[in-house]
Design a protein around this nucleic acid. Structure first.
Lengths: 231, 231
DNA sequence: ATATAAAATTGAGATTACTCAACTATTTTG
DNA sequence: CAAAATAGTTGAGTAATCTCAATTTTATAT
């Protein structure tokens, strides 16, 4: 965890983020004064489940996985965070401790904003507050899909869902799949690593996907969506 | 669905609800003007998954189950709502349609508030907005527990979790368990009805619970909590 | 009150997905 | 670069949970 001294870069970032648009210059200055930018190395924790929350993170570069820690051997991965997204929003309103852990999948830049500052801005600037909450809601929406997948579907459908979800983050710039282990993918689907490997291989045999080293290419998106529905 | 004309009662309710404390008299009048009170009979839908959201509900009396609709034969019940709680808060910020269904377990009184009114209040009255958001967050918090239970635990642990959760609503006035079928309980735990019945019977044999008609008495809360942990 | 429908219960068998063990491939470290 | 550690793969056996069918109980309607 290394501090970045280049404040120009940091200031650029917060000005560009759409959620900061409704702030007055004074309010913007308040944010600037209370934030610090941090570089998280691949594998480092941005949040730790159970730890006290004193700040909110805003990711400006990199990829992060969010997960619920289980009994030690198992985690449940529920979200990938990319640049332009917040981590730990609920701490502003209610949480004393983080409900989940977050780990950088690649070197990740984020700035940390004291939650008291955000809290007071939300209360004094209703427009900012409303947009901030909008963001928070969007975060939560995906939980319904996650629960649907985990509760109703079985192995193939769940893994299909996960592949489709992860594929959206698999760009030229950031090849998400190459950053994830088989266990990571299994933890997204709530399956054992072995089952995950077996299904991946079987999907490859059926020409739905192509496994090249760690990267995964989706060859037949339609079929994968069908598997997601019927699973 | 029958309109209640007794507005005095309705006005009493909104004044008493703690979340309406930070409103000015004018703002309160805005709420009064935009709301209508409705009586939902047992079994009626308060919200229907997929339907357009035009209002938020505030329950003043009765018990409601919230659930995600599955493939037709299966639902996943994730929450019980009692008096003093909102339904459909996220629609104020983002949702065009309801993400879940809600059905009255007993005759339920609720008032409906146009979401545009709440939306503008949140933006003009930051304090109200902040408290409103706090409420919304508390609603969402339980999702982490739900996911934990569903993903990590097996039958006994999941059912134990569900019994402990439901038991908190099982008061003298409102005997929740008598309003729930075995399938309802199964849908909370994400189990088949048959498995649920078998575990209930086995818990009764071990003197952890007592089944009297539809009501369920928890005899050994500590043991149930242990089962929840180890399951 | 009786007939009918719905819900609860029970057991047997089938299915799903996991665990374990062995092995191979890849990555990391001295 | 070699050795060790980690990650990925595969198959066989096992455990968990579901499905189905039969039966009993409870609720509803005529």
């Amino acid at each position: 965890m290394k501090l970045i001294t280049d404040t120009d870069f940091a200031i650029d970032c917060d000005i560009q983020a759409p959620c900061f648009q409704h702030l007055t210059p004074d309010e913007m200055e308040l944010i600037r004064g209370s934030k610090t930018q941090v570089l998280f190395r691949k594998g480092e924790n941005l949040t730790k489940q159970g730890a006290f929350t004193s700040y909110v993170l805003f990711v400006t570069d990199g990829l992060v996985k969010q997960f619920i820690e289980g009994d030690g051997t198992r985690n449940f991965n529920f979200k990938i965070i990319k640049e332009g997204e917040f981590i730990g929003l609920s701490s502003v309103f209610t949480d004393k401790t983080f409900q989940y852990s977050s780990v950088a999948l690649s070197d990740t830049r984020a700035f940390l904003i004291e939650k008291e500052v955000l809290s007071s801005l939300i209360q004094t600037n209703g427009m900012f507050g409303f947009n901030f909450m909008k963001r928070f809601c969007n975060h939560q929406e995906s939980f319904f899909n996650t629960i649907q997948s985990v509760v109703y579907k079985q192995m193939n459908g769940r893994l299909a869902d996960v592949l489709l979800y992860l594929n959206d983050f698999n760009t030229e710039k950031n090849k998400l799949f190459t950053l994830l282990s088989r266990k990571d993918i299994a933890d997204f689907a709530g399956l054992s690593t072995e089952s995950t490997v077996k299904i991946l291989k079987s999907l490859e045999k059926d020409c739905v996907i192509k496994l090249e080293e760690k990267n995964i290419l989706i060859l037949n998106q339609d079929l994968l969506q069908k598997i997601s529905k019927n699973g």
